[in-house]
Nucleic acid binder design. Sequence first.
DNA 1: AGGTATACCTAATCATGTTAGGTTTTCCTA
DNA 2: TAGGAAAACCTAACATGATTAGGTATACCT
Lengths: 196, 196
Amino acid sequence: MTDRRARRHEATRQEILDAAWALARERGLTGWSLREVAAAVDMRAPSLYVYFERKDAIYDAMFAQGYRELLAEFGATSTDGEPVEVLRQVARGFLGFCVADPARFQLLFLRVIPGFAPSEGSYALAEDVLARLRGVLEQAGLTSQRAVDLWTATFTGLAAQQISNEPGGDRWTRLADEVVDMMVAAMSAPDGGRSR
Amino acid sequence: MTDRRARRHEATRQEILDAAWALARERGLTGWSLREVAAAVDMRAPSLYVYFERKDAIYDAMFAQGYRELLAEFGATSTDGEPVEVLRQVARGFLGFCVADPARFQLLFLRVIPGFAPSEGSYALAEDVLARLRGVLEQAGLTSQRAVDLWTATFTGLAAQQISNEPGGDRWTRLADEVVDMMVAAMSAPDGGRSR
DNA sequence: AGGTATACCTAATCATGTTAGGTTTTCCTA
DNA sequence: TAGGAAAACCTAACATGATTAGGTATACCT
């Protein structure tokens, strides 16, 4: 395929993704049909198959895009300064990211779509994020696998509660700093992070 | 309706629910159709409407049943002894409950079903459970709303991670005791549970 | 100018939840 | 105990969903 055409193809693909995101935000992650996406970009449903081989492939592309955005959010967080303060920053940033787009949160962190699993490539992006997180935690002395596991569970848990019980509020997200301090106190060596 | 008939009706209703649970456990919470449930109880799909006015009503009944089971699990946990030990017991019990049936976990604690919201009556059961939890936490000095919120977020978070990342394992659930101790240390008065 | 891949379409298939409109079964009552 | 009403079930049909088949037109390279 020629360059010009490839660019055009990619642009249309992104247009479709944008339409899907808009619908997902409006009507819920799974609350939209291919016909609706198609209508939003002035096509008929079957034409979408030129750009995505199945509906799940759209979800997969959204998944990848979401993790790329999270990586960007990470990048925007200043990583220098007192390690614990950096951690607080990261925690707040993460929660803000989750709450900003509940549909995205569900797609990235909950298993909401029946039968959908991210492709290898998309999953790799998720692991990039995790690696990045591991780095920041280490800086603050949270080196154990247990600490990382607890971190992810706690903060996705906080986001989930916030989103499903009080969307738009901060009853759970405002606990961020406190929780960070708590985890640092309990799990930084020696030897809350027992052995490794 | 006569008593005999009412009993029969209720029995069939439960039969349908059991079939739905079985399918949900087998193929995922949303991975079954009315036709399949009907086949499992030797009927055709439309006949199910004698017992449930819509598919969501089945989910609602499952939701209620799930919370009744959780209440029972609570009842089975000995509530006397050292408060912190009781808390550990409760935490382990809860995680066991979640991991034992991922479909149930999703139904009760995640918003997985598009468009489904529990009825008032079913939701009341969920609040019963929460009230019960509040009681146990208070016994151990965790009296603040913040402590309760953090508790629910953390333990549903742990369960979610365990279920979606390592089903059948214990990488997250084994953190239970440690997390309980951590929360008690950080949030029992004075005055981790600041003011109220 | 012509050929070919691409982009798009309509028509159709099959599964889904749900409604309409029966027929059969059950069981209370006269 | 006969009759009738309600309950329990059925088949047929609909609308909407994802997806496939099989075309037509457009864009671009040679």
